[in-house]
């Protein structure tokens, strides 16, 4: 059997007393495209921050190619081959598209701009581009260091249907070239359509992990997204339930 590229065991992360991640177990295999979904505030972005070193883990182990990631800072993790994109893109607005890509440390055979078909934008400033183009620049910058693992935070947000389809193709292409991808997104058709495996988070916990068709019909997932479709017996009109969620 193959050895996982990234192995996270019992990851926990608390901000003050608030639990953002609770004993999360995740394995990413080489060349795998894993989707991470869940309602707002479920801890998806926090999970990416924890893996890339921007959020301090409270507990748990995190290994990449068998090496302990927790001993390294964000820069070293990036150089080891863990790249990411940001929900807010975080493009370097003072640099041209080509310069944005050049900041990445590491060698790459084919220019990521050519690979994503945006080489004609090389000399433009990010501020002049459409949102869809900006997303691609963010992806190109992340790919520039030839990462082994690419973590993506809601890349499809704000894209139109055509752009989403293009993004899906690009991600499949990236995976085909041997880079593993973790895709956090709210776009269910995209995530369920292109991922090999989908992991569902709610309240900082993994509630389901499996192939897309299984996740799609999992009652727990539907409840997490739409609210439990139960009777009306759980209400407490005097507000006495408030403040008791700590015991959850």
């Amino acid at each position: 059997m193959t050895v996982p590229l990234l192995r996270a065991e019992a990851l926990s992360l608390y901000y003050g007393g608030v639990c953002a991640l609770r004993r999360i177990d995740v394995e990413i295999m080489p060349g795998e495209l894993v989707g991470v979904i869940g309602p707002n505030g479920a801890g998806k972005s926090t999970l990416l921050d924890a893996i890339t070193g921007f959020a301090p883990l409270t507990d748990g182990s995190l290994t990449f190619e068998g090496r302990d990631l927790r001993r390294h800072g964000p820069t070293q993790r990036a150089r080891m081959g863990v790249a990411r994109t940001w929900q807010t893109l975080q493009l370097f607005e003072d640099l041209t598209v080509a310069e944005n890509v050049r900041t990445a440390v590491g060698r790459h055979s084919v220019s990521p701009l050519v690979r994503l078909g945006i080489d004609r934008l090389a000399e433009r400033m990010p501020g002049e581009l459409s949102h869809g183009q900006r997303v691609l620049v963010g992806v190109a910058r992340a790919l520039a260091g030839s990462p082994k693992l690419l973590l993506m935070d809601e890349p499809a947000a704000g894209l139109d249907g055509h752009e989403r389809a293009l993004l899906g193709e690009i991600l499949r292409d990236v995976v085909a070239s041997g880079t593993s991808v973790v895709l956090v997104d709210h776009d269910m058709p995209l995530v369920l359509g292109i991922c090999d495996r989908v992991c569902v988070l709610d309240f900082g916990e993994v509630i389901t992990d499996g192939p897309p068709h299984a996740v799609r019909h999992d009652p727990a997932v539907i409840a997490a997204y739409l609210g439990a479709d139960e009777g009306e017996d759980s209400e407490s009109p005097d507000g006495s339930g408030i403040g008791k969620e700590a015991v959850r």
């Binding site: 070193g53 990036a78 150089r79 975080q90 370097f92 900041t103 990445a104 440390v105 992340a142």
Partner: peptide, 10 residues
């Protein structure tokens, strides 16, 4: 521009 994003690109 962003120390975090810079660190994330190595």
């Amino acid at each position: 521009s962003s120390e975090a994003a810079a660190a994330a690109t190595g």
